[in-house]
Protein backbone atom coordinates (compact mmCIF):
# COMPACT_ATOMS: atom_id res chain seq x y z
CA UNK A 1 0.00 0.00 0.00
CA UNK A 2 2.69 2.46 1.05
CA UNK A 3 4.72 1.39 -1.96
CA UNK A 4 1.74 1.93 -4.29
CA UNK A 5 1.14 5.43 -2.92
CA UNK A 6 4.84 6.16 -3.28
CA UNK A 7 4.82 5.09 -6.94
CA UNK A 8 1.65 7.07 -7.59
CA UNK A 9 3.15 10.17 -5.98
CA UNK A 10 6.32 9.69 -8.03
CA UNK A 11 4.32 9.49 -11.28
CA UNK A 12 2.23 12.56 -10.37
CA UNK A 13 5.35 14.55 -9.42
CA UNK A 14 7.26 13.50 -12.51
CA UNK A 15 4.31 14.47 -14.75
CA UNK A 16 3.96 17.85 -13.05
CA UNK A 17 7.71 18.48 -13.41
CA UNK A 18 7.60 17.50 -17.09
CA UNK A 19 4.60 19.79 -17.68
CA UNK A 20 6.41 22.68 -15.98
CA UNK A 21 9.48 21.86 -18.04
CA UNK A 22 7.51 21.80 -21.29
CA UNK A 23 6.04 25.18 -20.38
CA UNK A 24 9.53 26.74 -20.36
CA UNK A 25 8.95 28.76 -23.56
CA UNK A 26 5.77 30.14 -21.96
CA UNK A 27 7.64 31.36 -18.84
CA UNK A 28 9.91 33.16 -21.20
CA UNK A 29 6.97 34.83 -22.96
CA UNK A 30 5.34 35.81 -19.66
CA UNK A 31 8.50 37.22 -18.10
CA UNK A 32 9.36 39.23 -21.18
CA UNK A 33 7.71 42.61 -20.59
CA UNK A 34 6.33 44.33 -23.71
CA UNK A 35 9.25 46.29 -25.11
CA UNK A 36 8.74 49.70 -23.51
CA UNK A 37 12.05 51.01 -24.78
CA UNK A 38 13.37 51.97 -28.18
CA UNK A 39 17.03 52.24 -29.12
CA UNK A 40 19.24 54.21 -31.48
CA UNK A 41 22.98 54.51 -32.05
CA UNK A 42 24.82 57.54 -30.73
CA UNK A 43 28.44 58.20 -29.84
CA UNK A 44 29.43 58.84 -26.22
CA UNK A 45 30.68 62.28 -27.22
CA UNK A 46 27.44 63.35 -28.95
CA UNK A 47 25.37 62.07 -26.07
CA UNK A 48 27.54 63.89 -23.51
CA UNK A 49 27.02 67.10 -25.47
CA UNK A 50 23.23 66.71 -25.21
CA UNK A 51 23.47 66.06 -21.47
CA UNK A 52 25.76 69.04 -20.91
CA UNK A 53 23.42 71.35 -22.81
CA UNK A 54 20.40 70.19 -20.79
CA UNK A 55 22.31 70.46 -17.50
CA UNK A 56 23.53 73.97 -18.32
CA UNK A 57 20.04 75.17 -19.26
CA UNK A 58 18.02 73.63 -16.44
CA UNK A 59 20.32 73.05 -13.44
CA UNK A 60 18.60 73.74 -10.12
CA UNK A 61 21.93 74.60 -8.53
CA UNK A 62 21.44 71.75 -6.08
CA UNK A 63 23.41 68.50 -6.08
CA UNK A 64 23.19 65.11 -4.43
CA UNK A 65 26.43 63.28 -3.73
CA UNK A 66 28.22 65.59 -6.16
CA UNK A 67 25.75 64.89 -8.97
CA UNK A 68 23.86 67.98 -10.20
CA UNK A 69 20.06 68.06 -10.04
CA UNK A 70 18.28 69.36 -13.14
CA UNK A 71 14.66 70.39 -13.66
CA UNK A 72 14.03 70.11 -17.41
CA UNK A 73 10.75 70.97 -19.17
CA UNK A 74 8.53 68.27 -20.69
CA UNK A 75 9.98 66.55 -23.76
CA UNK A 76 13.45 65.12 -24.31
CA UNK A 77 15.62 64.58 -21.23
CA UNK A 78 19.06 62.93 -21.13
CA UNK A 79 20.87 60.87 -18.48
CA UNK A 80 24.34 59.34 -18.65
CA UNK A 81 25.05 55.99 -17.02
CA UNK A 82 28.70 55.52 -16.10
CA UNK A 83 30.74 53.82 -13.43
CA UNK A 84 29.25 54.31 -10.80
CA UNK A 85 26.54 56.95 -11.18
CA UNK A 86 23.59 58.18 -13.19
CA UNK A 87 24.07 61.84 -14.04
CA UNK A 88 22.40 64.29 -13.81
CA UNK A 89 19.67 63.62 -11.26
CA UNK A 90 16.27 64.44 -12.75
CA UNK A 91 13.59 66.54 -11.10
CA UNK A 92 10.30 65.97 -12.94
CA UNK A 93 6.76 67.32 -12.57
CA UNK A 94 3.59 65.31 -12.05
CA UNK A 95 1.42 65.08 -15.16
CA UNK A 96 4.09 66.08 -17.69
CA UNK A 97 5.39 63.61 -20.27
CA UNK A 98 9.13 63.11 -20.77
CA UNK A 99 11.11 61.12 -23.32
CA UNK A 100 14.02 59.89 -21.20
CA UNK A 101 17.10 59.04 -23.25
CA UNK A 102 19.78 57.12 -21.41
CA UNK A 103 23.15 55.85 -22.59
CA UNK A 104 26.32 54.44 -21.10
CA UNK A 105 29.52 56.29 -21.84
CA UNK A 106 31.89 53.61 -20.56
CA UNK A 107 31.01 49.91 -20.05
CA UNK A 108 27.79 47.87 -20.21
CA UNK A 109 25.39 48.82 -17.41
CA UNK A 110 21.92 47.63 -16.53
CA UNK A 111 19.08 50.15 -16.41
CA UNK A 112 16.38 49.34 -13.89
CA UNK A 113 13.79 52.13 -13.59
CA UNK A 114 10.38 50.92 -12.38
CA UNK A 115 8.78 54.37 -12.89
CA UNK A 116 9.49 54.04 -16.61
CA UNK A 117 8.78 50.27 -16.59
CA UNK A 118 12.33 49.87 -17.86
CA UNK A 119 14.73 46.97 -17.38
CA UNK A 120 17.33 46.80 -20.08
CA UNK A 121 21.04 46.66 -20.79
CA UNK A 122 22.84 49.87 -21.71
CA UNK A 123 25.44 48.97 -24.31
CA UNK A 124 27.93 51.76 -25.08
CA UNK A 125 27.16 53.34 -28.44
CA UNK A 126 23.40 52.96 -28.05
CA UNK A 127 20.87 55.26 -26.37
CA UNK A 128 17.69 53.77 -24.92
CA UNK A 129 14.51 55.85 -24.83
CA UNK A 130 11.60 55.37 -22.42
CA UNK A 131 8.53 57.53 -22.04
CA UNK A 132 7.64 58.63 -18.51
CA UNK A 133 4.56 60.46 -17.25
CA UNK A 134 4.79 60.64 -13.45
CA UNK A 135 1.44 60.57 -11.67
CA UNK A 136 2.49 60.86 -8.01
CA UNK A 137 5.15 62.99 -6.34
CA UNK A 138 8.01 61.23 -4.57
CA UNK A 139 11.48 59.73 -4.98
CA UNK A 140 11.83 57.02 -7.63
CA UNK A 141 14.78 54.63 -7.76
CA UNK A 142 16.91 54.22 -10.84
CA UNK A 143 19.66 51.65 -10.50
CA UNK A 144 22.25 49.64 -12.34
CA UNK A 145 21.20 46.00 -12.73
CA UNK A 146 24.27 44.54 -14.40
CA UNK A 147 27.54 44.03 -12.53
CA UNK A 148 29.91 46.75 -13.78
CA UNK A 149 32.68 46.93 -11.18
CA UNK A 150 33.45 46.99 -7.46
CA UNK A 151 31.05 49.84 -6.66
CA UNK A 152 28.22 48.54 -8.87
CA UNK A 153 25.96 48.22 -5.83
CA UNK A 154 26.29 51.96 -5.18
CA UNK A 155 25.25 52.85 -8.72
CA UNK A 156 21.79 54.19 -8.06
CA UNK A 157 19.97 57.49 -8.29
CA UNK A 158 16.67 58.87 -7.05
CA UNK A 159 14.54 60.72 -9.56
CA UNK A 160 12.52 63.46 -7.86
CA UNK A 161 8.92 63.97 -8.88
CA UNK A 162 7.37 67.24 -7.70
CA UNK A 163 3.62 67.95 -7.32
Amino acid sequence: MASFLDRLAAVVFASAALALFAAMPIWHRVAESPEAESRQTISARDFSTLVEAMTKAHATGEAEGGVPIVHPPAGDVYVIARRFEFTPILQLDVGRTYRLHIASTDVVHGFNFPLGKAETLLVPGWATTVTVTPTHPGLYAMQCSEYCGLSHSRMKARVRVMP
Binding site: S3, D6, A9, V11, F13, A14, A17, F21
Partner: peptide
Protein backbone atom coordinates in the same frame (compact mmCIF):
# COMPACT_ATOMS: atom_id res chain seq x y z
CA UNK B 1 10.30 11.89 4.50
CA UNK B 2 9.52 10.54 1.04
CA UNK B 3 9.20 7.03 -0.36
CA UNK B 4 12.04 5.75 -2.56
CA UNK B 5 10.22 6.31 -5.85
CA UNK B 6 9.14 9.86 -5.06
CA UNK B 7 12.66 10.62 -3.78
CA UNK B 8 14.12 9.43 -7.07
CA UNK B 9 11.58 11.48 -9.05
CA UNK B 10 12.50 14.58 -7.04
CA UNK B 11 16.21 13.95 -7.66
CA UNK B 12 15.59 13.35 -11.36
CA UNK B 13 13.65 16.59 -11.74
CA UNK B 14 16.66 18.54 -10.43
CA UNK B 15 18.66 17.22 -13.37
CA UNK B 16 15.77 17.71 -15.82
CA UNK B 17 15.60 21.44 -15.19
CA UNK B 18 19.32 22.07 -15.72
CA UNK B 19 19.50 20.13 -19.00
CA UNK B 20 18.43 23.17 -21.09
Amino acid sequence: PLGPWLSAAVAGSLVLFVLP
